[in-house]
């Protein structure tokens, strides 16, 4: 039960302003969810490097010496940049799995928010205004991003319970609504070896899509599968390294507004979230159809494709 915003840029000239635009959109949605806020930003990938976003309970202590330890592990340069309770680790792509295993072992209190070539996820308990300021989201550049402000329904108000959820490399998902079969689905996915960090229904949705994609479906196809397998009320906005998608459930009660110009595609739970975007007056504005998937990919900027109807 929440407010969602998303922005997928087509015009590279807007990329330096991604954080600023998305932050303003999210703050406008504050009323829809007072419990926690989070934002995923897809920045420019560095060749052969991977990024890990970490969250610490005690940033000053746990952060200390982390870069050296990871460099020792990978035998190559590692950069760690601390932002409030989060840190972004940049390391050689081939060192990612070892680094994750090491972090789990050496610093079990660390939470891994995301991993991938381009995504960084920042989320905390609190209002969007505070969360955005804390991580200086406004100054961030990027190609696309997704934000969420949460009114918790059944799972705990914690950092990990905040959206976006990331369960695969460069994947993230935010949700408005309430799934009604997430417990069964969670058990099935857990039996298939997927680890869950929270009791949150949205994490199940994210893990479900990751599992489908691991079986070779692309994001759009995985979302289409979700229309059959997920029960309840849901609007999802999802991101991948190069893609941005929206899925609306067959009942389609939860609010959703989309806008598209030659420069961007934007999503908001309400029109208010979109009013300050450049050129919004000339944008095509519509509400996503029930039981439909919308998907854009930077690698093939073909525009909206409705895969299921």
């Amino acid at each position: 039960m929440c407010g969602i915003v998303g922005l997928f840029l087509k015009d590279p000239a807007l990329e330096p302003r991604l954080g600023e635009l998305l932050s303003a959109m999210l703050i406008t949605m504050t009323d829809r969810g007072p419990d926690s806020a989070g934002i995923a930003i897809y920045g420019k990938p560095v060749p052969r490097r991977m990024k890990l976003t970490l969250q610490f309970d005690r940033p000053q202590e746990d952060f200390d010496g982390l870069a050296e330890q990871l460099e020792h592990l990978s035998g190559d340069a590692v950069t760690v940049s601390l932002k409030s309770s989060h840190a972004v680790v940049q390391l050689p792509a081939e060192a990612l799995d070892d680094a994750r295993a090491f972090l789990r072992r050496a610093l079990p209190s660390i939470r891994m928010m995301s991993a991938g070539e381009s995504v960084e996820i920042y989320k905390e308990v609190g209002l969007p205004q505070e969360v955005v300021a804390r991580f200086d989201i406004r100054s961030m550049a990027g190609t696309h991003g997704i934000g969420h402000t949460r009114m918790a329904t059944e799972s705990a108000v914690t950092t990990l319970g905040a959206h976006p959820f990331s369960t695969g490399p460069d994947q993230c998902l935010v949700h408005n609504g309430s799934l009604s079969n997430h417990n069964n689905l969670r058990r099935e996915l857990a039996r298939a070896g997927i680890r869950f960090e929270t009791e949150n229904d949205t994490e199940v949705a994210a893990a479900y899509l990751t599992a489908r994609m691991a079986k070779g479906r692309n994001l759009g196809e995985a979302l289409e599968d979700g229309l059959c397998d997920l029960d309840g009320f849901f609007t999802f906005v999802v991101g991948t390294r190069t893609g941005f998608g929206v899925l609306r459930d067959p009942i389609a009660c939860k609010p959703a507004v989309m806008a598209e110009t030659t420069s961007y595609v934007a999503f908001g739970s309400e029109y208010r979230a979109l009013v300050d975007l450049p050129g919004i007056d000339g944008a095509r504005i519509w509400e996503p159809e029930p039981a439909s998937v919308y998907f854009w990919d930077r690698d093939r900027l073909a525009g909206e494709s409705t895969l299921a109807a």
Binding site: R32, M151, N176, S178, F233, C253
Partner: peptide, 14 residues
């Protein structure tokens, strides 16, 4: 069984 013009607590607030 549901209200015709809102669903969920975030809409109910409005």
């Amino acid at each position: 069984c549901r209200h015709p013009d809102w669903t969920g607590p975030d809409d109910l607030e409005i």
